[in-house]
């Protein structure tokens, strides 16, 4: 039986959400194509997590060794390469995460299997794969096909597939597998994990966030928005470009690499809405977006939208609230 291989991503013993999202999609594809879903766990997770994986896969292959507890791009690439040679899965799914991006392209080269990255949807019919992905920061969607091959590698965007609560009815076998004997020594070494999101405020706790993006234009313009946030009793947060430019500290960053927030209201000022940002505000009650660009992706997810210069709105709000 053809197999869809899902590489389990885990951190500090905890299985990451992306893993369940990939297993869910693999399950859907397998039912329509009579494939088996095989999860590969490199390194260890706790017992409950392992059983949870087994409820969502036909087989869970477990390769456990102390040296594999932490992610390593070389080890993952070499181990998965050997497994792919051995089992020849039709499709291999890997998270489009920092770690996934660090080895999946090398695996594609090593196996000769074509790869599509950052997929938001996947189709499989008669052994032919088709991927849907985004370009130009989400302004264009593209359907991607592959050169004929024994197998395909796809990296999957975190959050692209929503796992329903009811899934997890498999009774997958948990199969320990041996470490390949001839693994080359990894060329990079894990040292430690550091939490970079701690700071003087916790934006994840705020009930009203006034958030700025690239549209703020210049560092000196931030003062006006800060003042508005003070008037409103709101917490100031931002999107990635503002932190990249060192205008605000990292602990104020909303998004995949910053914090996920859940305010009652999120006021997005000059934020275009890259998917990494949108993923961070999925828990917000109401999103109000102000942006000059009518086609900014933020308007696709916002509840209320205003196409205008953010400073005109900021000043008008301040004038109203000052009264």
């Amino acid at each position: 039986m053809e197999e869809i291989l899902v590489i389990v991503e885990h951190r500090q013993g905890v299985v990451r959400d992306i893993t369940h999202e990939m297993l869910f999609k693999a399950g859907q594809l397998s039912r329509n194509n009579s494939c088996a879903v095989v999860a590969l766990l490199i390194g260890g997770v706790n017992e409950n997590a392992l059983e949870e994986l087994a409820r969502r896969a036909d087989k869970v292959l477990v390769l456990e060794q102390d040296s594999l507890k932490n992610f390593n791009p070389d080890s993952y690439k070499e181990i998965i390469f050997r497994l792919i040679k051995d089992r020849q899965p039709l499709m291999t799914l890997i998270g489009h995460t920092s770690w996934g991006m660090g080895y999946a392209p090398a695996l594609s080269v090593k196996t000769g299997y074509p790869m599509a990255t950052d997929c938001i949807d996947i189709f499989l019919e008669n052994r032919r794969a088709l991927a849907v992905r985004q370009m130009y920061g989400g302004k264009i969607f593209s359907k991607v096909s592959f050169k004929d091959s024994d197998g395909y590698i796809l990296t999957v965007r975190p959050g692209a597939f929503v796992v329903p609560d009811s899934i997890g009815e498999c009774q997958g076998e948990i199969l320990p597998i041996p470490i390949p004997p001839d693994l080359p020594r990894p060329r990079s070494t894990f040292l430690e994990l550091v939490d970079t999101s701690a700071g003087e405020v916790d934006i994840a706790q705020a009930e009203l966030l006034v958030s700025i993006g690239r549209g703020v234009g210049d560092e000196e313009n931030i003062a006006a928005v800060k003042e508005l946030a003070n008037f409103m009793g709101a917490t100031l947060s931002c999107s990635r470009p503002v932190v990249d430019k060192n205008w605000l500290p990292k602990f104020r960053q909303v998004g995949t690499s910053g914090k996920s927030v859940r305010p009652k209201v999120y006021l997005a000022l000059g934020i275009s809405g890259a998917f990494q940002h949108i993923a961070g505000i999925s828990g917000a009650g109401t999103v109000i977006a102000v942006n000059k660009d009518r086609k900014a992706p933020i308007f696709r997810v916002a509840d209320f939208g205003i196409v205008d210069d953010l400073f005109r709105i900021v000043e008008a709000l301040k004038a109203k609230l000052a009264r």
Partner: peptide
């Protein structure tokens, strides 16, 4: 890494 975490690694 995702979620405000950072890995330190040697290479």
């Amino acid at each position: 890494l995702e979620g405000g975490m950072e890995e330190r690694a040697g290479i």
